[in-house]
């Protein structure tokens, strides 16, 4: 009896030390990259140009949709812009840009200078829509299929590696 208790105690401490060791090499910061495989309930977001809402209808055009949150005041958004321009040429993919907490004039200027990669353009003046998409900092992009299933989340600016990954996903099907 006493021996088992001693063994259990030693075991517990080995477990604790082991777990501590494992955690040392882990990043303690959190991001939402792993939250894939869930479905968005719907797309319902204000259009950038007109006084109307963009809805699930925009999914009909293509098999995949990349939802990109951006703003003219966000400098990493400038870095990722060329990637978006490149993605714009992909056939199987639509891109919706959501202009986040921005001034309309600044946003227009941004697109005029750097080009407009977006098939649809929406706006989120107060940022409230971003919560529905699980966004917590921009730039952030979500790749979904036309069943509204989240395939991939990109936190921070899109990189060339991300570009290749998106390409491989949309070509596979």
């Amino acid at each position: 009896m006493q021996k088992t208790i001693k063994l259990i105690i030693v075991g517990i401490f080995i477990l604790i030390v082991g777990v501590f060791y494992l955690s040392l090499n882990k990043n303690s910061n959190y991001d939402t990259r792993n939250l894939v495989g869930k479905k968005l309930s719907e797309i319902h977001i204000e259009s950038f140009y007109e006084d109307k809402y963009l809805t699930n209808d925009i999914l009909k055009k293509n098999n995949f949709l990349l939802i990109n949150f951006w703003a003219s005041w966000c400098s990493p958004c400038r870095t990722e812009h060329p990637i978006l321009m490149k993605l714009n040429r992909e056939k199987n993919l639509s891109i919706i840009g959501v202009n986040f907490k921005d001034k309309k004039s600044n946003a227009n200027l941004f697109l005029k200078n750097l080009g407009n990669p977006y098939d649809f353009l929406a706006k989120d003046e107060l940022g409230k829509h971003s919560i529905n998409f699980g966004i917590y900092g921009i730039p952030e992009s979500i790749l979904i299929n036309n069943d509204l299933l989240i395939l991939k989340k990109f936190v921070g600016p899109l990189s060339t590696a991300d570009y290749k990954e998106i390409k491989s996903i949309i070509i596979k099907k």
Partner: peptide, 19 residues
């Protein structure tokens, strides 16, 4: 290894030694 408001400087190599 903790995510805390009080984390000002940390370094895993220190962790290994203390562990």
């Amino acid at each position: 290894i903790l995510n805390s408001v009080h984390t000002f400087a940390s370094d895993p190599s220190r962790g290994v030694y203390i562990l």
